[in-house]
Every structure is written in structure tokens, then in C-alpha cells.
Amino acid sequence: MNLVRIPRDYLTSLVRAWNDFWFQPSDPAVLAAIRICAGAMLFYTHLVWSLDLQAFFGADGWLPRDVVRLAQGEAHTTMWSYFKLDLIAENPAVLWMVHIAALVVFFCLAIGLFSRTMSVLAFAAAVAYVNRIPPGAYFGLDKANCMLAMYLMLGPCGARFSIDRWWKKKRAAEPLPDPPPSVGATVAIRMIQLHMCIIYLFGGLGKLQGWAWWDGSALWMAFANLEYQSFDMTWLARFPRFLGFVTHVTVFWEVFYIVLVWHRLWRPLILLSAVVVHGGIALSMGMITFGLAMLIGNMAFLTPEFVNSVFDPIVERIKPREA
């Protein structure tokens, strides 16, 4: 009898856990906070393209479309981008119009104006930029940006901390209750969480293919790289054991993030480590945008209560005053 009941109970528990993991409605506060930060990062990232728009996306720039086509190979057909169109690439005025439109979209996403629509447009725009430049001027920031933009589409990212919410409150005859828990918010947050785990897992496993992460010299190699340097950390040459220790801790943190971040007691420590790792990379190696984008991804592991306690007072302070 047990031979039937035990597997059946196990399967039932498994299905219940799966359903709870993906379909238990949750407060959209965390997703909304990620929307603000990711939207701002998307806006800044693409604002910087303005300084070299023609050089990177024009017809005769660093990477002409025929070179990109050659580099992308068979993937070129599915790596779509409207920047590959003659109409846009060969007409600077059109190129600028498209670029400004994208900046408006990213800005609206950040402030939460027509949030859901803007999240779809922002994802399409972010992918269009990034599919035009690789393998050339892209790096980890673009991967994190597109990943976040993609998952923002899945849930009510403008349900809190947004112009949409403020407008809804203003038009309502009675005080609005908090936005209802949402399955879409849960799915979006779960996807960001799992994607972050995969990023760190493969980041860690990739490091294990090299010798410098095994013998502890990798961190020194990063600090000794003048082109990445924003603060001179070469004084650490006097402390090779410390460098080796931090190198190994970094690999362990990346490889085991996928396991430890789900544990209630380990989670704060793992997230604090993310702040230290990415903050350190941002400050000492000049990759501020990449570091921040990864930290925005890590926000998916925060609780709605914590996010509300941080964002509610800020939103209360900056929201438009009644006349």
C-alpha cells in the first residue's frame, strides 16, 4: 500500500511546491523597485550611446553591417535589430529619431508611465541595440540589461512606485487599497532569481576552466590590469595570501550562489557578498554600470516588506504635490 501512497504523496507535494513557487500571487513591490532601477540603468546605458551613435550604429562606423553579418554567422538572421535596416543605418536623422524614441521609452519605464507598454517597448529597443553590436562593443552590462528588461514585461511592474499608480490614485474617488498580489509579479521575480543563479553558476564554472582562479592569482591579475583600473589596488601585492583567499572566496560564492541564496539564513550573507563583489568591481575596476546592473538583478531576492520600507518613504517625499 505504501509503495503506491508514498510516491503519490511525493508527486502531489512536488506539484504543490511547483505551483506555489510559480503561481502564488505576490506583492508587486519588488518588481516595481526593479523597474525603477533597471529603467534608469537602461536610460543611462543608452544615453551614453548618444555620444557615438553614428560611429557605432551608422553605416560607416566601427562595425559596418557587413562585418557584423560575417561575425554573427548563421545567427545573424535571428539576431534581429532595426539598426540593421538601410532606412535607419544610412540616414543619420532617422537614426537619431529612433534613438531618442528609445530614450523616451527607457525614461518612461523608469518613472512608471504606461509601465506595462513601456516594458515591452524597452525590451524590444534594448535587444535592437545589443544585437547590432556583437561581437564587438558589447559586454556583461548588455546581458544584464536585456535580461531585466525581458522579465519586467511579465508582471505588473508599474503597480507601485510609479506615475501610473499616482495617476490612478489621483483619479480615484476613494483612497486606493494596496495593489493586489499578482501571479505575474511572482513569475517575473522567479525568472530573475533563476536567471541570476544561472549567470553566477556559469560565471563560477567558467572561472574554474582557468588556472588563475585555482592558484589564487586571478584577483591580482585583475588589479594589475591598467586598462580596467579606476583605483590603484596594486598595493595589495604585499598581501598575496589575502589576494589568494579573496580569489577563492569569489569563485566559491559564484558557484554556490545557486544553492545558498535560497536558504533563509544564508540569503542575507550572499546578498551582502554581492554588494561587496560588485561594489568592489565597480569601484576598483571601473565597471560601475555592470556592477549596478548585477545588483539590480540581486534585488529580486529582497522581500516586498523590505522594499516597501525603503521605497515608500522615498516615493512619499518625491510624489507630485496636490495643488
Binding site: T78, V127, M150, K207, W211, Y228
Partner: peptide, 25 residues
């Protein structure tokens, strides 16, 4: 792969891996 390319998901995450190397200028 087509889906991954369309959504810009078809890539690795080898940040400073396998080894942080010299710069190319």
C-alpha cells in the same frame, strides 16, 4: 537557438574567465 537569439539570451557568462588576461589595445 532562434528563440534565444531573438531575445538576446544566447551567450555565456564568462566574466573574467577562464583567466583575467592582458588587455588588447
Amino acid at each position: 537557438e532562434p528563440y534565444l537569439n531573438i531575445c538576446y539570451l544566447n551567450h555565456g557568462y564568462n566574466f573574467f574567465a577562464p583567466d583575467p588576461g592582458p588587455s588588447l589595445l
